[in-house]
Design a protein around this nucleic acid. Structure first.
Lengths: 165, 165
DNA sequence: ATTGAAATAGCGTCAAT
DNA sequence: ATTGACGCTATTTCAAT
């Protein structure tokens, strides 16, 4: 069966940009000079390209990856939240407020029985229980919150651009 | 009820280290000189502290945050994987191999009915189906894989150290 | 858009505290 | 552990292509 080609919504990156993305994904502090040498362009060109990647939103930011257990949050959980009624405002409020809650690492609005997965890092099991009760179960519109303790977290090893080496 | 004090497994960070962590979490490329000024120590001291934070594993790395939809992977999913038998080797194999699979952003070994949540970014719905069938459903030991499409991803806004401003 | 070169700014070592 | 100063690199601007 022939592959259906849909119109690309986003202009694809050229090889050089892809490699820059991959390099900065692996080491976000790699010096511009090194980046330039690796991809084979002048330093000034490299600077422009990286800036454009940021402006276009390909690179959303460069952030230190912190081990939560080393900063007083050794207990992680993935909490499946189910809404009742599915009023639009509930989702909008949730979307706006949940990222600001203490210890929230991320949240995912998903299809299926569960509406949101909330990934959280807490000081203790007690603090996790309080988080769920205070901020999720107790929230208007929320029917149910099911907490799964996280025993272990794995991070993807490949780069998103697929240009590893 | 009095608070039970457990022995700390990790030595707590002092205020300066906490602030360095928070600053690098927000901007992983912040220059050492700026960091030093912000936290009120000499540049050389700052350099030593940041290096120690990395060596101690508090800072696990500094990485560019890439928008998957901008690099050809516009379809994200959270896949709940359930194992049968729960043989140790199955978990060990999974743990070792899943991070290497193309498009895997992360995976979480959790308590409860689900054993693993796998977060993946794919080229298309077709590619997602193939990923689930080829790498999860088809895997020895895996009983079931339930795919939830991700409509929206939220990232935690607070810093882990709690020292925002 | 890409470049090399020049000016500016940042990094990292060191001897001293 | 922290420091300021020094020498070395890296970043960024710019005129030209």
């Amino acid at each position: 069966m022939a592959k259906m080609v849909h119109p690309e919504v986003v202009p694809p990156l050229d090889r050089i940009d892809q490699r820059l993305v991959a390099l900065l994904e692996k080491d976000g502090r790699m010096p511009n000079a090194t980046l330039a040498r690796e991809v084979g362009v002048a330093e000034s060109t490299c600077l422009v390209r990286v800036r454009q990647l940021r402006e276009r939103g390909v690179i959303r930011g460069i952030h230190a990856d912190i081990d939560p257990s080393m900063v007083g949050r050794p207990v992680q959980a993935m909490i499946a939240v189910r809404f009742g009624g599915h009023r639009r405002t509930h989702f909008e409020d949730f979307r706006e407020q949940v990222p600001k809650l203490p210890g929230v690492l991320g949240a995912f609005h998903v299809s299926g029985a569960t509406d949101y997965f909330v990934h959280v890092a807490c000081e203790s099991a007690d603090a996790l229980r309080d988080f769920v009760l205070d901020h999720l179960t107790n929230r208007p519109g929320v029917l149910h919150a099911e907490t799964a303790l996280i025993f272990d977290t794995l991070k993807g090893e490949g780069t998103l651009s697929g240009l590893d080496e």
